[in-house]
């Protein structure tokens, strides 16, 4: 009820035509890579930095006035890249990437705060892209929890199975795990299948 009222209130004062599009998922699923791909395609600049080390994005990153055009239709997006949601953060995991203990502890602290922020922002999204690493097991509780919360909040969702350029990728497994959702397979890194993603994104906006 509180979320419903908040969405109605936000809807009244929302900037006309602007769609707040959130990128959610586990760490290293490729949220920033996709946000960067969109920004590069339509603005010619990046949104954030990417790394192989988990929790590279530890703060919410926003890019406003990203205008996408397709079949004569123009949509203005506000892209919101969120830190990856995880249930565990162990500073020792960062030390495996060569980080000193103090630095690893600092990064772990920032990562926990980033997750709390990501959760808080859930209520503010108009639509969400849930990024899933198609080379990993899709049945992780984090994916299920994120999707469950979006359903409860009545926020339209597009499930993106990323990293289809890799050998281990299994898009069918992702589709099997989330049969109630439209799943589009892409490689945010190479740009493979990105046109299909844009097509699905425009369909998603119609559901708002």
């Amino acid at each position: 009820m509180r979320n419903f009222a908040r969405r109605i209130f936000a809807g009244i004062f929302k900037k006309k035509g602007e769609v707040k599009l959130g990128f959610y998922g586990s760490p290293n699923a490729g949220k920033t890579s996709l946000a960067n791909r969109i920004c590069q395609d339509w603005l010619g600049e990046d949104l954030g930095s990417v790394s192989r080390m988990p929790h590279e994005t530890r703060e919410i990153q926003v890019k406003e006035k990203v205008i996408l055009e397709r079949d004569g239709k123009r949509i203005e997006f506000k892209l919101i890249d969120t830190p990856g949601i995880a249930t565990r953060i162990d500073f020792e995991d960062f030390m495996k990437f060569g980080m000193k203990k103090k630095m690893a502890q600092g990064r772990a602290k920032e990562a926990t705060q980033g997750i709390i922020e990501s959760i808080k922002w859930l209520d503010d999204m108009d639509a969400v892209v849930v990024m899933i690493d198609s080379t990993a097991n899709p049945y992780s509780q984090v994916n299920i929890t994120i999707l469950g919360n979006l359903v409860v909040r009545n926020i339209p969702v597009l499930v993106v199975a990323n990293k289809i350029d890799l050998k281990k990728s299994n898009i069918k497994k992702v589709q099997g795990a989330f049969p109630d959702y439209e799943v589009v397979g892409i490689s945010a890194k190479s740009g493979e299948n990105i046109e299909e993603f844009y097509e699905e994104l425009f369909k998603l906006v119609r559901k708002i």
Partner: peptide
Amino acid sequence: IENSMTLIG
């Protein structure tokens, strides 16, 4: 999840 993140550290 939020609660457990608050407790880490």
